[in-house]
Design a binder for these strands. Structure first.
Lengths: 200, 200
DNA sequence: CCTACCGATCGGTAGG
DNA sequence: CCTACCGATCGGTAGG
């Protein structure tokens, strides 16, 4: 086996792993992080169960790694494009728009990965819930920072940042819930209008 | 067997059924409507699986009946006390307060039954999702009615009822999600303040 | 990554 | 309501 072949093998392993993880995020937005079974994932990925175990070791590790992957996808599709906009207020509005876009584009086929995962795992203490809490804290902290920086520029005067962040995340959840129930794009239009009106 | 005995048997059957249903709502707020298994429910209720089947026939019927039971509980703890208040605006604020109270009181031990159920079953078409859609439509219609009646009394002037209802349900979801993740009563206080400021 | 296997549990049925 | 059972699937392991 040449060095190139050895590298190819490892590169292919990494590529397979990432393909499996994409499928894991897709599957789990439909059946949940707990409903995500290793057998079903193996079938979807066209490999045997032991192949999944070779990559992830246990269901818990698979769940945690799937959340990491969903986090990466969310950052790439929602957060990073928004933060590329000029100035905190445009970034705040851009984040809202991008969030609604990612529902509309079905970045995750079952809706918002994190809305579903938080509601599912919130009542079940453990490493999965802890990992989801971290995501929620980080998103809230980012939104709060953008609100406060907007205020430093004279916008959103007199608003309580924590309360406003609470309202914005609530509208994200409401859009996610209503869109998943109705598949009606009107929901996203209403959310967009309401968020823009609220954030000026 | 006397008539009294025949009646007793049926009354006991109804009582058992209602006890099992309470346990089904409790269990499913923790493990989900899909994670609710007939074996686990039977053990929790102290009977055999076939006892559960005798009452509900199938898992689908059990899920639908469990939603009906949760609906009843939600109406009794949240909606009815609010509608007992004088006037639409007090009823609207009362509904928000009662919703947060029912989280605080852990009416369902895993948090808000319907927040969790909608996020879980939203991406899965079928009778369960349809039943949850009905709940959401009815709650939204009630909130919209209260907003419009408040406006007829001169309050909430200039607000779009649909947008405001969207905001309120969003804050319900945000409170449910954050409280289930953190168990921090501070979340409920923040939600209460924000809702009152928004609707006051 | 594979096949082959483990005990446990799933939804559901037969027969009483 | 019970016991006893069905095939399918669960998470996970052994051995390669």
């Amino acid at each position: 086996m040449t060095i190139e072949n050895a590298r190819r093998v490892r590169a292919d392993g990494a590529r397979t792993r990432s393909t499996v993880l994409r499928q894991a995020t897709e599957l789990s937005t439909v059946v949940g992080l707990d409903g995500l079974s290793i057998g079903a994932l193996a079938t979807a990925a066209g490999m045997s169960k032991s192949g999944i175990y070779a990559h992830f070791g246990s269901k818990l590790e698979l769940q945690l790694t799937t959340i990491d992957e969903a986090d990466r996808i969310f950052r790439a599709h929602v957060i990073e494009p928004a933060l590329a906009l000029p100035g905190p207020h445009a970034q705040l509005l851009g984040l809202c728009d991008r969030y609604l876009d990612h529902l509309d584009d079905r970045v995750f086929s079952g809706g918002c990965f994190f809305s579903a995962a938080v509601m599912e795992m919130g009542p079940r203490p453990g490493p999965v819930r802890d990992r989801l809490s971290r995501f929620q804290r980080e998103l809230s902290a980012l939104l709060a920072r953008l609100v406060m920086e907007s205020q430093a520029e004279g916008r959103l005067a007199g608003e309580d940042p924590r309360g406003l962040v609470f309202e914005v995340t609530g509208q994200f959840l409401a859009a996610s819930a209503a869109y998943t129930l109705t598949d009606d794009p009107e929901v996203l239009a209403l959310a967009r209008t309401t968020l823009h009106r609220r954030l000026g």
